[in-house]
Design a protein around this nucleic acid. Structure first.
Length: 282
DNA sequence: CGATGCCCCTGAGAGC
DNA sequence: TGCTCTCAGGGGCATC
């Protein structure tokens, strides 16, 4: 589900509820998500105060005052939903199917924050804060696409000599961290680059267009609150609306916007769908 | 090392 | 209504 814009949307929704808040109660409904939850997960969290809530690539990163950091990845269907703690009664928010609500956090501000994940491709972990950047989750990650370290020169160096197609290469989080299947198709379309081009074959002008397209599409999507295809929701339950601005994703057979007379095609690369216009992407 | 395919898991939607 | 099949915002791992 969530790529960088959706994770950032969730972070922004959670931030006012979590930053500076103390976790008064944590409920763990099963021993594992995608991976086993860490030992004593609940006890290591209860009583901790969250100093700050950040995002790195597609990870939510909550620094605690205990020397540990809570890290969460939403996988495909993971969501955090904020509600109010109501003694006795409990009203389900849209999207909070209790069957798949695996972890619940309660704060000293009276918020109830539920982590719900039907497919359970998401995961959480507790990591020593002083060793965070060396942890396997983070160590190999490429630059943040919206940061200055992601630029044409650096991307060119990372792609140099690569024969793998540019679409699949951009999904590799070691090259750039945070893109997923939707935004790679959208960025390549905006940059007018064919998804089957060998990554190492991009010329400087194309690298520049690609970097600018990646930044633009992610910024636009964050502004729109992310994309809701099936089940993405912000922490307050709101739906994103960037899906209405997709130019190619999910539009197989539709005409490319004028003046192009092409028809959008779908191909499979690395086992996942790619959408593009064969007439304007070269 | 690179490319490919399978796998984790559940649900939605299409087609019969 | 119900069954079967395909597909899905991610990514790890085995295999060749």
């Amino acid at each position: 589900m969530p790529e960088l814009p959706e994770v950032e949307t969730v972070r922004r929704g959670l931030q006012p509820h979590l930053e500076g808040a103390k976790l008064t109660r944590v409920v763990q409904n099963r021993p594992d998500l995608r991976f086993p939850l860490p030992d004593d997960f609940v006890h290591r969290l209860e009583g901790a105060t969250i100093r700050r809530l950040d995002r790195r690539a597609k990870y939510l990163v909550a620094e605690l005052d205990t020397g540990e950091t809570l890290v969460a990845h939403l996988g495909m269907t993971g969501r955090f939903l904020v509600g109010e703690r109501k003694p006795g009664q409990f009203h389900h928010q849209a999207g909070d199917d209790p069957k798949h609500t695996h972890i619940v956090f309660e704060t000293d501000r009276g918020a109830r924050i539920a982590f719900n994940d039907a497919r359970r491709f998401g995961y959480m972990d507790l990591i020593r804060t002083d060793a965070l950047s060396e942890h396997p989750y983070f160590k190999g990650l490429g630059p943040e696409p919206l940061g200055e370290d992601f630029n044409a020169k650096a991307l060119g160096a990372a792609l140099k000599g690569k024969k793998q197609n540019i679409k699949v290469t951009l999904l590799d989080q070691r090259i750039v961290a945070g893109l997923g299947n939707i935004y790679v198709s959208e960025a390549l379309f905006r940059a007018r680059i064919h998804p089957e081009r060998p990554a190492g074959s991009l010329k400087p002008a194309e690298l520049k267009r690609l970097v600018e397209a990646v930044k633009a599409v992610l910024a636009d999507a964050i502004e729109a609150g992310g994309s809701t295809l099936r089940d993405f929701r912000a922490a307050d339950g709101e739906l994103g609306y960037f899906q209405h601005r997709f130019r190619v994703y999910g539009r197989e057979g539709e005409p490319c916007p004028p003046p192009c007379k092409g028809e959008i095609r779908r191909i499979v690369q690395g086992g996942r769908s790619t959408f593009f216009c064969p007439d304007c992407q070269h």
